[in-house]
């Protein structure tokens, strides 16, 4: 496990029993109904750690990540950054926090301005946060470009002149120039070719190992997650269903949903047996989640109790490790 030993570890970010809910369109009478995208999620991240949120589209992983940046409405619970609750911060503290949490999006072509050269794009965080003197802007930008594996000759280029992998590196460089402690990366790899993915994986690994930057990595690709993550939270319909150290969760998945996800990846790799049934159906609508365990409609182990009661946290069997391996499933309670 990376980061400091448990006793003296300082927490960088703690998400505490968080609910995120959105108001739906008004029907014309009374209050607008709300849809809860994230239910009761608690996660903590230490410096240098990579925590992965895994799940299908619509499971709430992006909502959770956006809530960390105050881009999604938190309706219950709290987010604590370096020991301070975000909702209680004043304007200055919030600004300071925003500098330290940076976001890298899925599609770099959409998140980089098409009308700005890389120089202009990369200058922005330096000017905004003034974390180095203007005379050092150029050398700082070149230094960071080097860290992400780009040469200074690309500074005059525009995003459309770069390849997908180069663009994603520019997006990372822009995040790094702010001097972050945590980078929230939303599917940073899924628009890239395999050969380019491999480089971004290596790069992110280096950044967390060498610069101690923590990552909240959002991905549906368990193979990518295995390469990077220290901890994994598996989400389904807005709830965390399994949590633990990456090696534990992938080697001994306890929740039927995690097992199904791993099977799906194995099947795409042609290593699963021909009779593997896969996961039937699709996630039900998050507007009307099923009662009881949200996964019971697709679970092959579903029992009577699963249809009625929401499962609580249970300990899954595990090899001794620093973090408990937790699962929210009646099979283990």
């Amino acid at each position: 496990m990376k980061g400091l030993p448990a006793g003296q570890a300082e927490e960088l970010l703690r998400i505490n029993q968080l609910d995120v809910s959105y108001a739906l369109a008004r029907s014309g009478f009374g209050h607008a109904p709300r849809r809860t995208a994230v239910h009761d999620v608690s996660i903590s991240i230490r410096p240098g750690q990579v925590v992965a949120l895994v799940g299908e589209s619509g499971c709430g992983k992006t909502s959770l990540a956006r809530a960390v940046l105050q881009l999604a409405p938190v309706s219950r619970g709290e987010i604590v950054f370096r020991g301070q609750a975000v909702h209680a911060m004043d304007k200055n503290q919030r600004r300071h926090m925003r500098r330290q949490i940076q976001f890298v999006f899925q599609d770099p072509l959409a998140s980089l301005s098409p009308r700005r050269s890389l120089w202009q794009t990369l200058l922005e965080p330096l000017k905004l946060y003034r974390n180095c003197p203007p005379s050092a802007y150029r050398s700082r930008i070149i230094e960071v470009l080097e860290q992400v594996g780009l040469g200074p000759d690309c500074l005059e280029s525009y995003p459309h002149e770069l390849s997908g992998g180069q663009r994603q590196r520019v997006a990372l460089a822009r995040a790094l120039l702010a001097g972050p402690a945590l980078i929230v990366a939303d599917e940073p790899m899924s628009s890239l070719d395999v050969s380019v993915q491999a480089r971004i994986i290596t790069l992110m690994r280096q950044l967390s190992d060498e610069l101690g930057i923590a990552f909240l990595l959002i991905s549906h690709d368990l193979a990518v997650v295995q390469q990077l993550a220290d901890l994994i939270a598996v989400m389904y319909l807005g709830r965390v269903v399994e949590f633990g150290e990456a090696g534990e969760v992938l080697a001994r998945p306890a929740h039927p949903y995690t097992q199904a996800l791993i099977n799906a990846v194995a099947m795409l790799d042609a290593t699963a047996g021909p009779n593997d049934p896969g996961l039937p159906g699709e996630p039900p609508s998050a507007l009307t989640p099923p009662p009881g365990c949200v996964f019971h409609t697709r679970c092959r182990h579903a029992m009577e109790v699963c249809r009625a009661t929401i499962p609580g946290k249970s300990a899954a069997p595990q090899a001794p490790g620093e973090y408990p391996h937790q699962v929210w499933c009646h099979l283990w309670s």
Partner: peptide, 25 residues
């Protein structure tokens, strides 16, 4: 072979490191 080696693969026994293809297309 290089494409295969660059592909992250899920494995129950531990991480198989990926090998990027040097250079660009």
């Amino acid at each position: 072979a290089a494409l295969l080696a660059a592909r992250p693969r899920l494995s129950a026994t531990g991480i198989k490191p990926v090998a990027a293809i040097p250079g660009t297309v």
